[in-house]
Design a protein around this nucleic acid. Sequence first.
DNA 1: CCGGTAATACGACCAAGGTAGTTGATGTCG
DNA 2: CGACATCAACTACCTTGGTCGTATTACCGG
Lengths: 125, 125
Amino acid sequence: MSRQHHLGELQLAIMRVLWSHGEATVAQVHKELGADRALTTIATMLTKMEKKGVVVHREEGRQFVYRASIREADVQRTMVASLTERLFEGDVSALVSHLITEQEIDVTELERLRELIERQRGLEG
Amino acid sequence: MSRQHHLGELQLAIMRVLWSHGEATVAQVHKELGADRALTTIATMLTKMEKKGVVVHREEGRQFVYRASIREADVQRTMVASLTERLFEGDVSALVSHLITEQEIDVTELERLRELIERQRGLEG
DNA sequence: CCGGTAATACGACCAAGGTAGTTGATGTCG
DNA sequence: CGACATCAACTACCTTGGTCGTATTACCGG
């Protein structure tokens, strides 16, 4: 269940469509992604993803309607944790520091984050 | 220069050794990584990495002494940005939120981060 | 000088992500 | 009914990361 779901670029893009739409056919996913790749690319990828266990499908007429079978928050958690491990030796705070100081967050956002931290500190305190 | 340096697991592990040691021979890297893989695996990887432009070497007798040719902060920046793009539609704050609420940061760290945000807010005016 | 050791060079493989063409079945529309 | 469009299945490639085995070369100790 909570296996390391380490998804590639296209796979993630597809997952995002499924997460936001709930369900989608190959054609819908394709369109949503800008229709720059071939339709079969999406279809092949979805097949591989189903084999891997990250999506499932039901049939509607002769079309397949796909649905994500893992939750977005779980994927975020495992992938962020993995990156944190690889780049910051597992130090989550180091990553947050990096984000705050190196990755362009405007003042309004900073204020929002400050409040978030306050709230979280309340919860943990 | 600022190409998307998208490094794999082993590559990152090797880079970390080089960043922290400044320079290292194949044998040193191998040892530092626990010597669980074959020595040639490290050697091959370093060759590939040099071709890719992320490390360079000089010769010392018969040995190659490798050195990183890209900075750690740059790799962090591009890889974090890439993940942010893929998982949070480029919304850095969303990632920070995720880290604060979902990834186990203790109260002391939260306080440290709060101060960091204050300071950054000062810098950005 | 000779045999073993230590290093790189080179080539082989495998898996996974990504991309797409072709085929064959099945519907639909005129 | 028949031509055309749609859709999944299958096959095929290519690239990159990762993992090694073997060959070749150079050095070092006896």
